[in-house]
Simulated scan of single mutants.
Amino acid sequence: MSLSRRAFLLAVPVGVAGCATNSPPAPPTPIVATPPQRFPTPAPEVKALYEGMKDGDWELPAVDLTLVDPRYLRQKVTYSSPYPVGTIVVDTPQHFLYLVQENETALRYGIGVGREGFAWSGEAQIARKAAWPFWYPPVEMQARDEKARRWAGGMPGGLDNPLGARALYLYQDGRDTLYRIHGTAEARTIGRNVSSGCIRMINHDVIDLSARVPVGTNVVVLEVQTGES
């Protein structure tokens, strides 16, 4: 299955973009400030998965789980899949990432995905993994964003880095697809279409996923059904 991507005329703010896009910018859309939606505090055993933690040289703060729909918090679920145990399956329309396990189960994580028009599908492999990775803004982004130009040589890993605590680099046939599974500190963006094509996870979740999968893991991104014949 070949990897595909579609690009529409959408501007991608540097604050949420972790990957490259070749689309030209569109006129900015006015932003109306609205208070964030709040959800009930989850059970203690779930909350414990997202407490503050030390990861290498970084102190990762606890996640405010009232900003995340409980559906998108890490959990083991029943999952029937044609793919082998250990495969990562990404369901972009539903904003779920599944790590296939034995006995028709999977670990399910919530994700944020690319805005409409940056959707992609196909199969790829994790060619490398990085903890607190550097971020290199795409040339197109540098051309239109002063902050991106400031980091043209690469932004060091850290709590403000758009790639978060981990990045899993997706390759196909030995070539970089420019897509990543990566972390984010912006928990409220999980379950939304917010970035320029990459798959973003809560930092705690991408740390957990990265520890479970080796380099070479197959990643299947399900095709988005558009209703077209």
Rank of each mutant, 00 (worst) to 15 (best):
F96A: 05
M1G: 12
P156R: 08
A165E: 01
W151P: 01
P61C: 09
K76V: 13
Q94E: 15
G122A: 09
Q101G: 12
G110E: 03
A48R: 11
R6E: 12
H182T: 04
W120I: 04
D145A: 03
P28N: 13
G110V: 04
P25D: 12
P84N: 11
C19I: 04
T105P: 07
P13G: 09
S196E: 08
T29C: 08
D57I: 03
S23R: 12
P13Y: 07
D205M: 05
R144P: 03
P13E: 10
T78F: 12
V194Y: 01
I126C: 02
G18P: 05
Q37K: 14
G86Y: 06
Q101W: 07
L168P: 01
D69Y: 03
R188E: 13
A106H: 03
Q37N: 10
A20S: 14
Y83K: 05
W58G: 00
E45Y: 09
A20M: 05
T92Q: 15
P61K: 08
G157I: 00
E223R: 14
D64Q: 06
E104N: 14
F134T: 01
T34L: 15
T105S: 13
P93R: 11
L97E: 03
V12P: 00
L168D: 02
V224L: 12
T66S: 04
V12R: 02
L99W: 04
S81T: 09
D64I: 03
R166V: 05
G164Y: 02
M53I: 11
P138Q: 06
P70L: 02
K147M: 12
T177P: 03
S229C: 10
H204W: 05
M141D: 00
D160T: 14
F134Y: 10
P162T: 02
A185V: 12
T29L: 14
L10D: 08
R128S: 08
D91R: 07
D173K: 13
G117L: 06
E116L: 15
P36S: 09
R128G: 02
P40T: 00
V63S: 02
V220I: 13
P27K: 12
G154W: 00
S121C: 11
A143Y: 07
G216I: 08
G110D: 04
F8I: 13
L178A: 11
G112K: 00
S23K: 07
V215H: 07
A130S: 09
R108I: 05
E223H: 10
A185Y: 05
L163Y: 00
F134P: 01
L168G: 02
Q125A: 14
A7E: 13
S23W: 05
L60H: 00
Y136A: 00
S2Q: 15
A20R: 01
E104C: 11
A148V: 06
T189H: 07
D69C: 05
L60C: 03
K129Q: 14
D173W: 10
V206H: 01
P84S: 10
Q75D: 08
R128V: 01
P93D: 11
R149L: 05
L170M: 12
L10S: 09
F8T: 14
